[in-house]
């Protein structure tokens, strides 16, 4: 018989919508019956939700953005002769 730990990777795939329908049904059944897996399932889902919400990243430092722009432009001109 499958142990709860065996469901972990499947739980994760299920949350990502990467599981085939038959396994989905099995997971749903187990999660419906097992408090531990239900809690794990809910908290993994929340973890990803929070990470997605927090995913925006900072702007490039202004000084670097400027230097980068110039370097890119110079390189472009070396290759194409104009920018």
């Amino acid at each position: 018989m499958k142990k709860c730990a065996d469901y972990l990777q499947e739980l994760s795939d299920y949350l990502d919508g990467q599981l085939d329908p038959q396994l989905c049904a099995e997971i749903e059944k187990h999660v419906g019956e097992c408090t531990n897996c239900k809690l794990m399932f809910d908290s993994l889902k929340m973890t990803v939700k929070l990470c997605r919400e927090s995913g925006q990243c900072e702007e490039l430092p202004a000084e670097f953005a400027q230097r980068l722009n110039q370097a890119v432009k110079d390189h472009w001109i070396r290759k194409f002769g104009k920018a």
Binding site: C4, A5, L8, N36, C37, L39, M40, L50
Partner: peptide
């Protein structure tokens, strides 16, 4: 990984899963 689930079978309860509050 094995310790994260099957918490109920553990002697010590450090890995018991608990419900989460709204973050």
């Amino acid at each position: 990984i094995e310790d994260l689930l099957d918490g109920a079978t553990h002697q010590h309860d450090s890995h018991h899963l608990r419900e989460w509050r709204d973050p």
